[in-house]
Design a protein around this nucleic acid. Structure first.
Lengths: 342, 342
DNA sequence: AAATAAAATGCAATCGATTGCATTCTTTTT
DNA sequence: AAAAAGAATGCAATCGATTGCATTTTATTT
């Protein structure tokens, strides 16, 4: 029998022959309780090893002081950076963070979101999975007026705060940079076009070409899921063209890396024969040789911003129902060896 | 006025003119309630958009179905892999995961641990921070018989389940491998010796040398915090020795990388002039050139194992108070270019 | 010292789900 | 048809903290 239950405010009350209400107020520094009593109560609380039961408090207050975050994969640099940023802000504001990963599986995502609702999280931060095409699970939050913030992979159909990076601008910059380096036939390995981030990146690429008077050659745009294998297949195909490209802009770093390795193995010089850029600034892109030019996405800062927005909504709830906004985080072009021809 | 409160079992009860107890039992598939009534109740629950309030349930059941995990930094590949593994197992078992990062700050770690206790987590998984030297915050969990599992950076002084990698074995293997490649003066860049993982790695290194009849030269062992800068400083010092090493075993990959870059810039050939190995198998180690030989630590699997152990303890609680164990996860030597001389 | 004002504390309901025990309703037995 | 057995459901307390309102205690005024 080791499970004597935890001390509660009632135990403290009994110890001091006072009421539980007084104990509760004292521990919350309610001025209605005299300083003397407060001190006495706090001393007794310490003595008994009292720790407030947050669950009871949450139930009574209809607030969990918890925010949920759902990402496709915890174990990916960009996402873990975002989570880290969220935790940073949440901790300082007194919130717990429950994490879950959808593994890009719609059914798991839906289960998670419902479970978080049942846990009465005060708000939710989410980047949706690749498969996610319907949004009933998220509309639940909207309907119940529970703050919701999307980041990175956002949902156009739902009106909520959103935090995205400037995919268009980043892609434009990268492409312009390749053009500035003298490249004229620039290929693009693009991601799935049901995700906005990838359509935006493609759009930026195309616009940069047009603006510089270069034509957009559809045979130079390949679509896939941006895995390492996809990269290999794509580069093979590009090299087999009658008129192969002199530069490749990959929609992520993983693909850029696999392309780079393929070229290296084939003895094709990067950047002299083919210049190369990625997107996301994965940690490895700095260290490979040649190092890969890419676009830096401020993951940690996005997480911070998402948490700030969310907590702001939570704490202003009901007061000013402010308009939902979309925040575009700036991207930064990082020029490295893989695209430096001059 | 948008905050009509969520429907509860009482609302369902009222709707159907039955008691809340029956509703509760029906929703939990208690056989005491007839199938007919159960169906009726579930239909009504759906109709009202009822979602159980986990907080209320947790309070009553004295169980939160939540486990806490504390790591120094979420945003590090090894740790995010562990977290991912924990989430994977926890989700399947119906547990939520609250994450926090200590930032290697003792005071934050202590606050977090207390807060998790107040949230009545059913168990805690933790890798302690570098600064952590006292353990009162953790003894709280022991004293209250709340399951606790350490991983990676464990605390010898506390009796609990622990999951570590075979640091000794991994280091031994790496060193043996370097010897097999013909290296004879093998240096070691070692980490802070208050952390067991680093003393073990050093021990493995030394033992391998001894076993092969090589002497342990203390001038070839340098101690620091294993940052990239530390690596630079260390390699400079090693190269300035009258009799510099022909191989370097770094206690982590970050250091190995910075050493490698330094050597590359100096035109010193890896592995021909100096062979190099790291530890941890950070994602970049595969892609750099030359790629870095290292020891793979199964982060995801460690997380899974930690969660399994913890949940096992939680659910067996009170029944068989089983002995605490330390699990040593196998490491794997990954031989890459940086150490392949033959 | 009585009357009034002000300060301190207590009572009891509440948050929503669960459960031991009691009660009601059905079915079976004689 | 009455009695006994079995099935289905309900009552009310519980988990621990909070809070509007009521009550008690103390301080102030006349």
């Amino acid at each position: 029998m080791n499970k004597k239950t935890e001390p509660t405010i009632h135990d403290i009350a009994r110890e001091l022959n006072i009421s539980a209400s007084t104990v509760s107020r004292a521990l919350n520094n309610n001025p209605r309780i005299s300083q003397k009593t407060r001190d006495k109560i706090k001393a007794a609380a310490d003595k008994l090893g009292y720790r407030p039961n947050t669950i009871a408090s949450n139930l009574r207050n209809q607030k969990s002081n918890t925010i949920g975050i759902v990402v496709p994969m915890i174990n990916r640099h960009f996402f873990s950076s975002v989570i880290s940023g969220v935790e940073d802000v949440a901790f300082k504001a007194g919130y717990n963070v429950i994490i879950s990963q959808s593994n890009d599986n719609f059914s798991k995502e839906s289960t998670i979101v419902h479970s978080l609702f049942s846990n009465r999280v005060d708000g939710l931060i989410i980047s949706i999975g690749m498969q996610t095409q319907t949004f009933a699970h998220l509309e639940l939050f909207i309907r119940k007026h529970i703050p919701l913030v999307f980041f990175d992979r956002v949902v156009d159909e739902i009106d909520a705060d959103k935090i995205v990076v400037d995919d268009f601008g980043g892609a434009f910059q990268v492409t312009q940079h390749l053009i500035d380096q003298g490249c004229r036939r620039i290929a693009h390995i693009a991601g799935p076009q049901n995700l906005k981030i990838y359509t935006e990146r493609k759009r930026g690429y195309q616009q940069a070409l047009s603006k510089n008077g270069l034509s957009v050659d559809q045979t130079l745009i390949l679509y896939n899921n941006l895995t390492a294998e996809d990269g290999q297949k794509a580069i093979r195909q590009l090299l087999s063209l009658p008129n192969p490209p002199d530069a490749i802009f990959c929609a992520n770093d993983t693909t850029a890396l696999s392309v780079m390795i393929f070229l290296r193995d084939k003895g094709i010089k990067v950047p002299e024969d083919v210049a190369l850029c990625g997107f996301s600034n994965e940690p490895f892109s700095e260290f490979v040789s040649p190092s890969i030019s890419t676009i830096k996405q401020p993951g940690f800062e996005m997480g911070q911003k998402a948490a700030e927005l969310l907590i702001d909504q939570i704490e202003k709830k009901g007061k000013t129902e402010r308009k939902h906004q979309t925040f575009v985080m700036p991207t930064e072009l990082i020029v490295r060896q893989s695209s430096s021809r001059k």
